[in-house]
């Protein structure tokens, strides 16, 4: 357990020393979401309708940006080998790395989302649902994304390939995440969507680190 905390602390420390990467993903998120009103028009009823989808798709894309750097630096400088050789099971260390990835890319998105929601004229209740949905959904994105990042490690054109592998798998998260906000706005209540999102998260917490670990071992052979 000590080693897991150490790896989280290390990755957060590294993110602090390379602030620009974290900030780039964040600004990407803001810019992409802000482009939609410019392309569609400022009519607030229309913006309210598309807001959940736009914010979620922007979050998917912003998470994708950081995935290429999830394991690549550790692979390049040999740290990944040392992780495999650590007495701590690799699955736990990988879970630690995914947690750190979420703290540096997912959590800032959750915190920023209400600001974007205001741009899209969402009311306070909808903003609350948006934050809760993102809070459940962004760890899911990091978990699934880690599988893709591990599979494409050291592979030609890995950065583009990872989006091809991961984006189709993000579909359920997008549907339930954006759907939660939509059904709240339409007065149906967000409970069903949010519990499905939580169920998916529980499933991913069990399976994703396992698949990621297997993929990492293959890439090191």
């Amino acid at each position: 357990m000590n080693a897991v905390l150490a790896i989280i602390r290390r990755d957060l420390l590294l993110a602090m020393r390379r602030k620009s990467e974290v900030l780039t993903a964040l600004f990407f998120f803001i810019i992409v979401a802000s482009l939609f009103p410019l392309g569609i028009g400022p009519e607030s009823a229309l913006l309210r309708t598309i807001a959940p989808g736009v914010i979620w798709v922007s979050a998917l894309l912003a998470t994708m940006l950081g995935l290429a750097r999830l394991f690549a630096p550790d692979h390049a400088d040999g740290t990944l080998e040392q992780m495999v050789l650590s007495p701590t099971p690799l699955g736990l260390l990988v879970t630690g790395k995914i947690a750190a990835h979420w703290i540096t890319t997912g959590l800032p998105l959750v915190l920023l989302a209400p600001v974007l929601g205001i741009q899209f004229d969402l009311d306070v209740g909808a903003l609350g649902v948006l934050v809760v949905a993102l809070l459940l959904g962004t760890p899911l994105l990091s978990l699934i994304g880690a599988i893709g990042a591990a599979l494409t490690l050291g592979v030609r054109g890995g950065g583009v390939l990872v989006s091809l592998l991961v984006l189709p798998l993000y579909v359920p998260a997008l549907i339930f995440g954006a759907g939660a906000v939509e059904s709240h706005i339409s007065g149906l209540g967000a409970g069903g969507h949010l519990s499905l999102l939580a169920a998916l998260l529980a499933l991913a917490v069990f399976f994703a680190p396992w698949a990621t670990t297997a993929a990492l071992r293959i890439s090191l052979e």
Binding site: R10, L14, R17, R18, D77, G78, T79, E81, Q82, L85
Partner: peptide, 16 residues
């Protein structure tokens, strides 16, 4: 636990 491996790459983080 009983073994230590040092490869081509040093597993040293440049930023730390």
């Amino acid at each position: 636990r009983a073994m230590l491996f040092l490869g081509h790459h040093g597993a040293v983080k440049e930023e730390l």
